[in-house]
Design a binder for these strands. Structure first.
Lengths: 106, 106
DNA sequence: TATAATTACTTACATAAAGTAACTAAGTGA
DNA sequence: TCACTTAGTTACTTTATGTAAGTAATTATA
């Protein structure tokens, strides 16, 4: 009795976005390429999970990894076209949060 | 060294949306009020977690619960105005998924 | 020359979140 | 009285995430 079955593509997108931290990682990358340690400290995610998420996002073609053999080595993560295409989603979440969530009080 | 700190309201919205199942529950409620068992079977969520999520969403003013003392009792969950306001977010996720995710093959 | 520093991770272990399946309560109906 | 239905809850298991220490490569410092 599966009355209203959900589009599998939507379901997949949602399961992606509903992984803890994934949204914030993408959001941070919307402002340009970022290094591992920068993402780690700005988001407050643990290195263990960040590493896992970045690998996953890379496999899904949402994030790309670039190695610059400087000293010390610099590795930058950025969004692919597929990743950049998530910007409207982020903008709508931003709009909603500004309309419906209270401003933090001091 | 917190270089690019994220807006706390956005962060809160994102932590909401990135809870497992929450997005799908809201998505299902966009098409009208639903009962517990309907959500349970259409989403594939366990009763234990669905109960938890609905309580949480109710506390946040996103979902409302209505009791109809029929036989057997009917309880319907629906979106508040705040919940309905998440529709554009869902539409953008839907659009993205249709553009960027492959159609399931048989 | 040995020690320390930096970045980008990985590993082992602890805690929190989610899944599973059985159970409860209230109200019929057979 | 026993069974059926809905809307949960409870106890227990599995999975996901957090924490903190460790690794490898390269250079800087004492």
């Amino acid at each position: 009795m599966n009355q209203a079955l959900i589009c599998p593509r939507f379901e997949k997108a949602m399961s992606l976005m509903s992984q803890r931290w994934t949204g914030l990682v993408i959001y941070q990358l919307l402002t340009g390429p970022k290094r591992f340690c920068t993402l780690e400290s700005s988001i407050g995610i643990s290195g263990r999970v960040l590493s896992e998420r970045l690998k996953d996002l890379e496999h899904q073609g949402i994030v790309k990894r670039a190695v610059y053999p400087e000293t010390p080595v610099r590795i930058e993560y950025s969004l692919t076209e597929k990743g950049e295409a998530l910007e409207p989603v982020m903008r709508e979440i931003e709009k909603w949060s500004q309309t419906w969530l209270p401003n933090e009080m001091k």
